[in-house]
Design a protein around this nucleic acid. Structure first.
Lengths: 336, 336
DNA sequence: GTGAAAGCGCTAACAC
DNA sequence: GTGTTAGCGCTTTCAC
């Protein structure tokens, strides 16, 4: 524990603790001479104010929480990167929590955070059913900003991407490249984010005169192994000639499954995925991706939170939509 | 801010705050009947104790800090994943900081954390020169555990991998596959972690009767673009037939550079890299990696920190070495 | 088995 | 421009 406190510092300077406190917070009441003395001595003694005393007194923590389904994920780690950079610029601290897509864990994090431990929360929801009542309760106590994995039914500020359009355009691209039977690998199904991607897929098919085939839509099931069998069986049985995957974790298994089934991407099966893989270009074949601006989403979400801190605009409903990028590569291209 | 506090709770129950506090902390002094009443009422009123009051009083924070060079990195995001899981199991909170390899930023984080904001620190050092004095000061105040990016000169608990052996074996493997001119892409050079990898490379060459050629060793230089030019120029000028890269961020540019230079991996250039890329197998060609047990390193490091919390063993010097895995794939294989 | 009182270190209201 | 005082909400002696 830090040993030297404000009283000792004051004693050393022949000042009161109040004056020292004010000097360190650069209060207008304090003479610049005194300020200089205080700052010098603080540096000399390596004084660091006790954050808990300060937080307790001021009812603010200079800390924000980030809740994500998983950290070891190309999208989320980039988003956290953006958040951390913004927070650091403002001398805020960042607490991190992962839900593993489990809404019970999510619930308990939110519960624990409602104690005032943080000044605000940035959350990307788990894909299980969300406890809306509890989320509402929390967001009445402190500002919450949602990013990427959002739910339209929950009021609040949301940073999302153009999920519907992105999915729509991806399917359109598959069709233009000759696909006749396009499968959809669904995830995030309980979330608006997931619904919009699905709707984009469905509408693109419909508008191109494709029939609705529920068998062509499968939903992810958790573990890596389960996802692999799921995808493999799907490809083996349905023999789609195109696939849009709503998450990276369902697209990669397609590569392995195709190898196993002796199918060639893109000749036998064209593939597009929502993905933030850094080196999609180096895959064999290179993967056509819908690349979300993950870092920017983090920056934007954190920026909004700090705006809320300053304006005290607690209760409002707003959605900011950033654009994703369809990067066309070999995996979706028609053979010559 | 949380509104209901322990006094209100006590009032509601016709008990003193002290009793409520003790009941909630499951003190042996309190009758089980009272405990039950208190817990029920706390749940009913959604009471969450104020963490700052509690931390201030107890001089502990139930929080740990993780300092890494970067979050958006396959190795570190996995390590953080491991750390977070261990912390969550113990109801600890995890603060996250990224240094961007800048030791000035690292310094300031350590400074800020020495105030008692956290009970302990897990750190993977930035590759710039470290301020050993300051690091020592911090680790006298609170427990610090180093992982992966460590420095032998600094006392403390360290979790590392078998860097020397891994590099040695990788070079041996390259030689066995016919490489005559093996380059080394160096990073982390101011750290023991980097030195060991380099030494493994050097010794493997020496023991195989290869001459020492300083021109075959290059050091990373920061941005993605800089690294690319560096690597491209190196390959173009030196024309190595084998490369060991000490970090993933220097290996990926080799793929792009070879494409650009119309060289084929592995025919013209065999490549091995320290890497935690999830899908190295899907690259074109698949990448031979030295895969570090990143998740386990995180788990181990966090586990040690909690052991230190319990035993109050503050000052000691111990290094735990986990094994990395050389996974041989196409990028390093001799043509038939 | 429970309560009263003090105090963790800081800051804000109120003096002067 | 600086000092005094009170109190943030909790836990921990010390009483009984």
């Amino acid at each position: 524990m830090g040993e030297i406190n404000i009283k000792m510092l004051a004693l050393e300077l022949n000042l009161s603790a109040a004056t020292v406190s004010r000097a360190l917070r650069d209060s207008y009441e304090i003479s610049s001479e005194t300020k200089a003395r205080v700052i010098e001595m603080a540096k000399k003694l390596n004084y660091e104010p006790n954050p808990f005393a300060s937080s307790l007194r001021q009812q603010k923590s200079k800390t924000i929480a980030v809740i994500v389904p998983a950290i070891a994920n190309n999208f989320f780690s980039l988003a956290i990167n953006g958040i951390e950079e913004v927070a650091r610029a403002r001398d805020y601290h960042v607490l991190i929590y992962q839900t593993h897509e489990n809404s019970e864990i999510e619930r308990s994090f939110l519960m624990r955070l409602s104690s005032g431990r943080v000044d605000g929360i940035l959350i990307s929801l788990a894909s299980e059913e969300v406890d809306k009542r509890q989320l509402k309760e929390v967001s009445e106590k402190l500002p919450v900003v949602f990013f990427d994995r959002v739910h339209d039914d929950i009021e609040g500020v949301k940073i999302t991407t153009d999920d519907y359009t992105s999915a729509y355009n991806a399917v359109q691209h598959l069709i233009e490249n000759g696909c006749k039977k396009i499968g959809y690998l669904m995830a995030l199904n309980s979330l608006s984010t997931g619904e919009k991607r699905l709707q984009g897929y469905l509408d693109a098919l419909k508008n191109n005169g494709f029939p609705y085939q529920p068998d062509l839509i499968i939903t992810n099931s958790g573990t890596v192994e389960q996802n692999y069998s799921l995808v493999r069986n799907f490809i083996a049985e349905q023999k789609p000639d195109g696939i849009l995957s709503s998450i990276e974790d369902l697209a990669m298994p397609c590569y392995y499954a195709c190898k196993d089934l002796k199918l060639t991407i893109p000749d036998d099966l064209k593939l597009i995925s929502f993905s933030n893989l850094a080196h999609a270009e180096l895959l064999n074949p290179s993967l056509t991706t819908i690349n979300q601006p993950a870092f920017e989403i983090g920056v934007e979400a954190a920026g909004i939170l700090f705006k809320i801190f300053n304006n005290r605009r607690y209760a409002f409903n707003e959605t900011i939509t950033l654009k994703s990028n369809l990067i066309k590569r070999e995996s979706s291209m028609r053979a010559e």
